[in-house]
């Protein structure tokens, strides 16, 4: 498709190798960022739009008394307009949540644990967590409310950081390809000096020669890009396979749920490859204009 006659010998594959490496790592980096973004997005959805109410058992109260207090808090919440779901976590659920941190269920069951109630305010409701908390704590002083604001902000920061990271990585890759093209083209020009001189003597313009260098770089960029992609995909499959067998089910769900979405987002990589190849083409061309000196 892109076949085109060239008067210059094809010289080495340095640029191809560089682009291959660049695309290989960019693909892996993009894929892992997408996986992390997926996980973060899931956290965000789980947490945003819900509040957690924590009821700390009053010292000396029996579990039955604590349960009674729980029930009246539930009734209060259920009767508050603007709340759509009120869901208490059972003591077993809380124990399960804590277990990974405290190691043994036995130890956990011996301490008097706070009770948790998950509250989902109505969508687009005007109810704000501050008002509810003030009302609640007037009646039940041992209650605290967490609307996850700090947590959500942190997640947003992490997500933003990942994006910036990827942008920085791509910028470095692009600069690398430009610099590599410059030096590869420059050394080719020196290598083919006598050929270029003959072409000039036969009436070639700078463009005629520059286009040939540019086309060679474009082809090396495209081939390197495709090679990098085809090397990265199996590695990606291996990594996701490994993750699937080593991650807890819940985490893995996040990934397996969205292969289509992933594939779509990974579509950015072929576009990136085309972009890199084009970049190689343009920088080769500019390099020729910069470096070439005519015989007269």
């Amino acid at each position: 498709m892109f076949k085109r006659h060239s008067d210059l010998p094809s010289a080495g594959y340095l640029l191809l190798v560089i682009v291959t490496v660049v695309v290989f790592f960019s693909t892996l980096a993009t894929a892992s960022t997408l996986i992390l973004q997926g996980i973060i997005e899931r956290w965000y959805h789980n947490v945003s739009g819900t509040w957690t109410i924590q009821v700390i058992p009053v010292l000396g109260d029996s579990p039955a008394e604590t349960q009674r207090q729980m029930n009246s808090i539930m009734r209060f919440l259920e009767s508050t307009p603007g709340i759509s779901v009120v869901q208490p976590l059972s003591p077993q659920q809380i124990t399960q949540l804590l277990e990974p941190w405290l190691d043994s269920t036995e130890l956990v069951s011996n301490i008097s644990l706070p009770r948790l109630i998950e509250v989902v305010p109505q969508n687009g409701g005007l109810l704000d967590s501050e008002t509810i908390f003030v009302e609640l704590s007037e009646i039940f002083p041992n209650v605290s409310l967490d609307d996850h604001k700090a947590w959500l902000t942190n997640i947003a920061y992490i997500s933003c950081f990942l994006d910036l990271n990827l942008i920085a990585l791509f910028s470095i890759m692009f600069v690398l390809v430009i610099v590599a093209t410059f030096f590869v083209t420059k050394s080719k020009i020196l290598m083919y000096r006598s050929i270029i001189e003959i072409l000039y003597l036969l009436g070639a313009q700078d463009d005629y020669i520059a286009i040939q260098f540019a086309h060679a770089s474009l082809m090396q960029g495209l081939h390197g890009g495709l090679l990098g992609l085809s090397l990265a995909l199996p590695v990606l499959l291996l990594i996701t396979g490994w993750l699937a067998s080593h991650l807890e089910g819940d985490f893995w769900l996040t990934l397996t749920l969205q292969p289509a979405q992933m594939a779509m987002k990974l579509g950015i990589i072929p576009i990136g490859v085309a972009w890199l190849a084009w970049l190689a083409k343009v920088s080769a061309r500019l390099t020729v204009y910069k470096v070439i000196a005519r015989p007269i």
Binding site: H5, D7, P9, I198, L199, L201, L202, G203, Y208
Partner: peptide, 20 residues
């Protein structure tokens, strides 16, 4: 002569036409 050694006879002779 100043022929390009890596090109065939055809491509060597074609250079001025391609340049034009």
């Amino acid at each position: 002569f100043r022929l390009l050694d890596h090109l065939s006879t055809l491509d060597n002779v074609a250079i001025p036409l391609r340049i034009a």
